[in-house]
Design a protein around this nucleic acid. Structure first.
Length: 490
RNA sequence: GGGACGGUAGCUCAGUCGGUAGAGCACGAGCCUUUUAAGCUUGUGGUCGCGGGUUCGAGCCCCGCCCGUCUCACCA
C-alpha cells in the first residue's frame, strides 16, 4: 500500500481518533448491533417520538458547537441524526467529535422532525462500530475518475447512488429470471466451468492445468453442450445462469468473463424460444423498470412491448444492399461494399461479404428489438437447417440497440448432420471434435428449442447503461505495472 | 495493435506566452444547540502518471513508457 505523505497524515489523525474512542470505552471495530430495522424501514415506520436503534456509515457531518447534525447511510437509505451535548452528556458528546466521515456507528434515540422538515433521529446513546482510516470521496461531485471507480468499486458505491441503483436493478433482474423460469417449470442446473474441451461456441478459451489429473483444462466458453446432454438424459426444460469465460478482446460490450443464461426446452423450437424471450425480457422490464419503454434520458427509448419485429437475414441485407444483391457477382458485391468503406479482402466469398454487410451496415441500425431469422448455416453449426432451405438455419438473433442480445435456435439433434458440421468447422483437426458430446447425441436428443441471453447486455438495455463495465461490479482491469515473471502470450 | 483524448493536493477541477503550483470540498485549530453542498475566522497539505531530452529555467515543448476513456481493427 503506497500512501503519499498527505494520506499518511490523514491516516494518523484517524488512528489518533481511534485511540481517543478506545479511551472513551468504545470497541474500535465494534460487535453485532441489534437494529430496529434498516434506515429505509425506519423511514417507512416513521412516527414522532418513536424509539429506534439504527446503524450506518457516517457520510456527512455538520458541527454546530454544542450540537451536531450528521447523515448515516446504509444499504437502503440515508438518514439524518442529531447529536446534542445535553442529550448525551459531556463525555459521550466529546467522544463523538472523534467520529470521522466514513466511520460506522450504531445508535439509539428517538425520531423527530426538524424545523426544516427533515425526518431525523435524536441520539441518546451511540457506539463506534468500525473506524475508517481513509477519507471518503468528495461529497458533492462524488467519484468520477473511471479508473478508480472500477478498481475501487466500493468507493463508487458509497459515493454515487445511481451506481447502486444499477446494481440493485441487476439483482432484481436475476431474481425475476429465476422466478419466471421456475414458475414455468424449468429446472435450474449447474454444469462444469472446467472442461477438457471448450465447446458450444466459437471463441478462444482460457487454458489452465489440473495437477491431480495431469491434464490441461479450459474454462467454458458456453454451457451449451452439457445442457444438451441433460436433454438426452431426460430433462425437458432446463436453464443455467452463470459465468462464461472468453479469451478475447475487451471493450464496452465485452468482458472476458460474463454472465449468460441458457435455456433448453425439449419438443420446442425457435418459435417457442422467441415467445419465451419476449415474455421474459418484457416481464423483467415491467417488474424492474415499471415500464416497457426503457433507456436513459437523452437516449432513444426502447419499446419492449411484444410482439417484436421479425425479419429474415436475407430481407435485412436486401433492404440495405438493394434487391439485386444476391444476383450480383462476387466482384460486383465486393465493389459495392468497398464503396461503403467496408474492408473486403479479395478472397472473401459472396456469403462472407454479405455477412460483412449485415455486421457493419445492418445490425447496428436495429435499435428497437428485432428478431433476425434464417441465418446462413455456416455461421451457426449447432442449429437445425430450415426444412424449406438447407442453406439457412432455423434460428433467431435478437438485436436491441444495435447489439446482439440473445441467439435462439431450433437445436440440431441429428447426430450425423452434427458430426458433419463440427468436422467442417474443425477443418481436419480431430482434436477439436467433441466425441463425448456426439456420442450423447447418438443416444437420442429430443427435438428442442434453445437460447442464450447475455445477462450483462440485458442489464444494459434495461438500465440504459452503455458500457458493460457499468453493469459489472468488478470489470476486468489491467495491472498497473506488469509483473516481471509475467508469461508472454503464445 | 492503430488513432484521438486524458492522468496536477485524499476527492472534483483550474493552471494564460516556458518564469515562485491554485480553488472548492475534505483535513487541523477557533466560534456556533434545528443544520443540510451549514456558516464565519484561520492553517496544513504537491513524485504535476513514470523515465529521458531541449532550455538559464519545463505542469506546459520533444522522445520513450505505464494506466485509463473513446474509437477503429483483430477475434467471431
Amino acid at each position: 500500500m503506497h500512501l503519499s505523505a498527505h494520506e499518511i497524515e490523514f491516516r494518523n489523525q484517524r488512528l489518533a481518533h481511534l485511540e481517543t474512542l478506545k479511551a472513551a470505552g468504545h470497541r474500535p471495530y465494534g460487535r453485532a448491533f441489534e437494529r430496529t430495522g434498516s434506515l429505509a424501514d425506519v423511514r417507512a415506520a416513521f412516527a414522532e417520538g418513536l424509539a429506534v436503534r439504527v446503524a450506518g456509515r457516517v457520510v456527512a457531518v455538520r458541527e454546530m458547537g454544542k450540537s451536531v447534525f450528521a447523515h448515516l447511510q446504509d444499504g437502503t437509505d440515508k438518514f439524518q441524526i442529531y447529536v446534542q451535548k445535553n442529550a448525551l452528556g459531556d463525555e459521550s458528546f466529546a467522544a463523538f467529535k472523534a467520529v470521522d466521515l466514513g466511520d460506522f456507528i450504531g445508535l439509539e434515540g428517538e425520531l423527530f422532525t426538524t424545523r426544516t422538515g427533515e425526518q431525523s433521529v435524536k441520539v441518546l446513546r451511540w457506539e463506534l462500530l468500525s473506524k475508517a482510516l481513509h477519507p471518503l470521496p468528495e461529497k458533492w461531485h462524488g467519484l468520477s475518475d473511471t479508473e478508480v471507480r472500477y478498481r475501487q468499486r466500493y468507493l463508487d458505491l458509497i459515493a454515487n447512488p445511481e451506481v447502486r441503483r444499477v446494481f440493485n436493478a441487476r439483482s432484481r433482474i436475476l431474481s425475476f429470471i429465476r422466478r419466471f423460469l421456475e414458475a414455468r417449470g424449468y429446472f435450474e442446473v449447474e454444469t462444469p466451468v472446467l472442461q477438457t474441451m471448450a465447446g458450444g461456441a466459437i471463441a478462444n478459451p482460457f487454458k489452465t492445468f489440473y495437477n491431480a489429473l495431469g491434464q490441461s483444462m479450459y474454462m467454458r466458453i458456453a454451457p451449451e453442450l452439457y445442457l444438451k446432454r441433460l436433454l438426452v438424459g431426460g430433462y425437458d426444460k432446463v436453464f443455467e445462469l452463470g459465468k462464461n469465460y472468453r479469451n478475447e478482446g475487451l471493450d464496452r460490450s465485452h468482458n472476458p468473463e460474463f454472465t449468460a443464461l441458457e435455456i433448453y426446452e425439449a419438443y420446442g423450437d425457435v418459435k417457442t424460444m422467441m415467445k419465451l424471450v419476449e415474455e421474459l425480457v418484457s416481464g423483467a422490464a415491467q417488474e424492474v423498470c415499471g415500464t416497457l419503454q426503457v433507456g436513459k434520458e437523452g437516449q432513444e427509448q426502447i419499446d419492449l412491448t411484444p410482439p417484436w419485429r421479425v425479419a429474415t437475414y436475407r430481407d435485412l441485407v436486401l433492404e440495405k444492399a438493394g434487391a439485386d444483391w444476391f444476383e450480383k457477382s462476387v466482384a460486383a458485391a465486393r465493389e459495392w461494399a468497398r464503396a461503403r468503406e467496408l474492408d473486403i479482402p479479395n478472397e472473401m466469398t459472396h456469403a462472407q461479404i454479405t455477412h460483412e454487410v449485415y455486421d457493419k451496415l445492418v445490425e447496428k441500425t436495429l435499435i428497437q428489438p428485432t428478431f433476425v431469422t434464417r441465418l446462413p448455416a455456416e455461421l451457426v453449426p449447432l442449429a437445425k437447417r430450415c426444412e424449406d432451405d438447407p442453406s439457412v438455419v432455423d434460428v433467431f438473433e435478437l438485436v436491441v440497440r444495435g447489439r446482439e442480445l440473445c441467439p435462439g435456435y431450433t437445436e440440431l439433434n441429428d447426430p450425423l448432420d452434427q458430426r458433419a458440421r463440427l468436422e467442417e468447422q474443425a477443418a481436419g483437426d480431430a482434436a477439436k471434435i467433441d466425441e463425448d458430446f456426439l456420442r450423447a447425441l447418438e443416444h437420442g436428443m429430443p427435438p428442442a428449442g434453445g437460447m442464450g441471453i447475455g445477462i450483462d447486455r440485458l442489464v444494459m438495455v434495461l438500465t440504459g447503461e452503455e458500457s458493460v463495465r457499468d453493469v459489472m461490479l468488478f470489470p476486468q482491469m489491467k495491472n498497473r505495472e506488469p509483473k516481471p515473471e509475467e508469461p508472454q502470450a503464445e
